[in-house]
Design a protein around this nucleic acid. Structure first.
Length: 857
DNA sequence: AAGCTGGAACAACGA
DNA sequence: AGTCGTTGTTCCAGC
């Protein structure tokens, strides 16, 4: 059967490469040189080639645009990276600010954006079994690959898809879509390509090496892309196959995303700035890394019988198909390949739609007004992800059997909605798409839930219908997790995360609700952390729950820890770290061995080092099975004698099961006590509170005064700090601007207020808004009434939520995180040399960001 | 026969 | 430079 996707492919051959592409080449190069971003505010007409594809898409309305200038109504800011003029950066910041004021639309062209996430993400996994088609991945990867010819056309980025959609990101040059879109890279990339690949592949060792400890850096000489002649996947010339598919028709574009993308773009731009040229584009990618993509057959775009798989191109097109929109029964095209019977089909992307959907790395609330997106049944804490080289390892399951369940509460309309699912990070930093894992669509007779896979900013997103007849409840039995090779991801230009030991993820669910006011409300809920590594799952202790979250400084109370892999000789260590990461205190709790099992430990809370604390003190504890086998940090708070303590018993303040049920580690910890009530109250919508537990950790950290990320990084646990993952909303976390810590109040506010969503409601602290690039990024939208785009969505700027060190840090952390690892040439960046552990690297990144931002501002 | 799993061998690193 | 411990990836084999 011909799927809608196919149709899509079929038409639009026209989508000219040129459309979105124009910029790519230049950008690309520029990046190499050193990312510089020039920002200019231009009138709509000027829509330049530079626009980021996604951005472009945004602007371009159906039918419009390609190269052309879409009819932009408002002035926009174009950020183009040019390698040559460092000064540009400076300008940039200024301009941005200005732009904000102007309320202009921001168009960012991201040079390296791809760095953020490699198209590879497109991992083959996408849809169909990875095995069958690496192609996707390949194609994507290849996209990355560097061999883009100078001509814009050739550049993968140019791909029509990208631009049209406007999707994401500028930032993601690497965007799969882009790749796919580009004729050359087109997923359909023909076999021919493969041939090349093969040869290419031959070079590679049988096993990819993963750059463990850190990312490899390749010197960047600023040379052109030609450097990577070998790019496996891309055939040098325009691929014969250039598939029409890739082309995007107006229809296929999803304007909706624009916002998102825009934001992403901005972020990307920022990243670009921060990124040092080193990592840039293909340079760094060792042939080896690409092997996967090369695999024979990889190239093929296989369409599963059901039409399950979408070619990259398709994906691109579909990217936001209906996600943003409510499902329309009538529109279903049978997009759910897997489930034919299903009455609903995915509607084709509609052109129009709301301009802005928040980027995947934006922090969104789980509740707003009457609506609440809840994970009723959490996924198991362990799920062995499969590699592209393996067959699927099935769908993520729930602890008690069955599968995770998500429900949107408070929605009384008859219009179906789309639930989006992607794999997010589970570390202390802001929730964002995980670079090393992708959601993998599972199909088959055992799967009852229809799903549709799309690519969004290089991140695979599974779209699942939320139907009124099902009470807006969906059983997530169609989502597996694909592991991408560390070497493939780390070598991507711009990628700052390290894959080693970064094996925890969260399932992130989003829903976009169109409201009568014309706005679109976006909610997000993240699951408890899921350990995806086979070994880690078998060996590392994991704490799922703790019965206490607070206790008087004197300690002495008993706490039951529930989890996995506890041993008879497991130790539970309480410790406190200073903001600079060094240990202030550490002590071992008494473990009642008689009552302990592999899934539970009964311990006695040790007394805090200082019995006279006047304010709550947040500390951490972890379970240790021996050297290097430690659980993530769990949070615990010592209360002063005069402060009422709060025991976290199951469902105290909220219904854990629903909202943040098991929240991992944190259990239902409630930071609340710490936060100043008033602030909390005013800032946080009650609805959000439920999430607090989830967010708890972040908050707590903050409370603890830790420099969040940093401190944690040094943490004992080698593994990335996953603990905190608050499932849902970061907001709560923010709130916590903890006492001890920084004044992040403003941040919190932004995120939290349901209104946050709404531009107007967004309160950006001047500083954040104007000063940091990150803020800028989002700012335009959020900043106020002015929000250029989007009336529809509340755009939440990427916020920092969790406890990271400084508010500022957090705020931008998200953006910069990925791409920013490197410093921009012009900006002096201080990289904090923290210890050794990989974890810290993350932190460092974050800091970099911060620094950069501040500099800019 | 294909899809899941669980295990474990192999390799690449880092200490 | 060699060894050992870890962790990431790839293979195998049994449902």
């Amino acid at each position: 059967m011909k799927s809608a996707e196919e149709d899509a492919y079929s038409h639009t051959p026209n989508v000219s490469l040129s459309q979105g592409n124009p910029c790519m080449p230049s950008q690309y190069h520029s990046l190499q040189s050193g990312p510089t971003i020039s920002v200019s505010i231009s009138q709509p007409p000027s829509y330049g080639a530079h626009n980021n594809m996604r951005t472009v898409g945004y602007y371009s309305s159906p039918g419009i645009r390609p190269n052309g200038a879409p009819a932009l109504e408002s002035p926009r800011i174009e950020i183009t990276a040019y390698g040559q003029f460092p000064e540009d950066k400076v300008e940039e910041s200024n301009n941005l600010t200005v732009a904000k004021r102007v309320n202009s639309i921001v168009t960012l062209t991201l040079p390296n954006a791809d760095g953020y996430r490699d198209p590879s993400c497109l991992s083959p996994a996408s849809s169909v079994s990875s095995r069958s088609c690496h192609s996707e991945a390949s194609s994507y990867e290849s996209g990355f690959s560097y061999n883009y010819e100078n001509s814009p056309q050739n550049s993968p980025w140019q791909s029509p898809c990208v631009s049209p959609r406007g999707s994401s990101s500028l930032a993601l040059p690497g965007d799969a879509c882009a790749n796919a879109g580009s004729p050359r890279h087109s997923p359909s990339t023909s076999p021919g390509t493969s041939v090349t690949d093969d040869s290419w592949m031959g070079q590679q060792g049988s096993r990819p090496n993963s750059p463990c400890g850190g990312k490899r850096k390749y010197s960047f000489n600023g040379t052109t892309t030609s450097k990577y002649p070998y790019s496996p996947n891309h055939s040098p010339g325009p691929s014969p196959h250039t598939s029409p598919r890739l082309s995007v028709t107006g229809e296929s574009w999803m304007p909706n995303n624009t916002n998102q993308y825009t934001n992403s773009a901005i972020v990307a731009a920022i990243n670009a700035l921060t990124t040092d040229g080193v990592a840039d584009l293909g340079e760094g990618i060792p042939l080896k890394a690409r092997k996967t993509s090369l695999e024979p057959g990889a190239v093929c775009l296989k369409v599963e019988p059901g039409g399950e798989e979408l070619s990259a191109g398709e994906l691109c097109q579909d990217e936001y198909p209906f996600s943003r929109l409510p499902f329309k029964k009538e529109n279903y095209c049978g997009g759910f390949l897997g489930v034919p019977q299903h009455p609903y089909s995915w509607s084709k992307p509609k052109q129009y739609v709301s301009p802005s959907l928040p980027a995947l790395d934006w922090q969104l609330p789980s509740s707003s007004g009457p609506y609440s997106l809840q994970i009723e049944v959490q996924p198991k804490s362990h799920h062995r992800a499969h590699y592209e080289t393996e067959g699927s390892r099935g769908a993520v399951k729930a602890l008690a059997g069955g599968h995770p369940v998500v429900q949107l509460q408070g929605y009384m309309e008859s219009e179906p909605l789309t639930l989006q699912l992607f794999i997010g990070t589970a570390d202390d930093r802001l929730l964002r798409p995980h670079a090393f894992y992708q959601v993998h669509r599972i199909t088959g007779k055992t799967v009852s839930t229809p799903s549709h896979e799309v690519l969004q900013s290089n991140t695979k997103v599974l779209e699942i219908p939320l139907l009124p007849e099902n009470k807006m409840r969906a059983i997530i039995d169609c989502a597996g997790i694909l592991k991408l090779r560390n070497s493939d991801i780390e070598l991507r230009k711009g990628e700052t995360d390290v894959g080693r030991k970064n094996t925890r993820v969260r399932m992130v669910f989003r829903v976009h609700i169109n409201q009568p006011t014309g706005r679109t409300l976006s909610l997000q809920a993240a699951s408890n952390p899921i350990e995806c590594s086979q070994r880690s799952a078998q060996e590392l202790p994991l704490v799922d729950k703790q019965t206490l979250e607070t206790c008087p400084a004197a300690g002495g109370e008993r706490m039951l820890l529930s989890g996995h892999n506890f041993q008879h000789d497991s130790k539970v260590v309480f410790m406190e770290k200073a903001q600079d990461g060094h240990h202030l205190w550490e002590t071992e709790a008494k473990v009642d061995k008689d009552s302990s099992k592999s899934t539970s430990l009964l311990i006695e809370i040790p007394p805090y080092r200082n019995q006279r604390i006047s304010n709550p003190v947040q500390v951490n504890f972890y379970v240790c099975n021996g050297k290097r086998k430690r659980s993530q940090y769990q949070h615990f708070t010592y209360m002063s004698a005069n402060v009422p303590m709060i025991k976290t018993e199951p469902n105290d303040d909220y219904d854990p099961p629903q909202v943040c049920p098991q929240r991992g580690p944190g259990l239902a910890l409630q930071p609340k006590p710490y936060y100043t009530p008033q602030v909390m109250t005013s800032i946080i919508p009650t609805e959000l509170r439920p999430c607090v537990g989830g967010t708890y950790s972040a908050c707590q950290r903050r409370l603890g005064g830790k420099p969040s990320s940093l401190s944690s990084s040094s943490s004992p646990s080698t593994s990335p700090k996953l603990h905190d993952l608050s499932p849902t909303t970061p907001f709560s976390k923010c709130l916590s601007a903890g006492p001890s810590q920084s004044p992040i109040a403003h941040v919190s506010i932004i995120q939290e207020s349901p209104g946050c969503y709404q531009p107007q409601s967004v309160l950006y602290p001047p500083s954040s808004a104007s000063s940091s690039p990150g803020s800028q990024t989002s700012t335009p939208d959020t900043s106020g009434p002015e929000a250029p785009f989007s009336p529809t969505h509340c755009l939440m700027p990427p916020q920092p939520i969790s406890g990271s060190s400084s508010p500022v840090t957090q705020q931008f952390s998200k953006v910069p995180e990925r791409g920013s690892r490197s410093s921009s040439p012009t900006l002096a960046i201080n990289i904090k040399q923290e210890p050794e552990e990989l974890d810290q690297m993350y932190l460092d990144d974050g800091e970099l960001l911060i620094i950069n931002l501040s500099t800019l501002s």
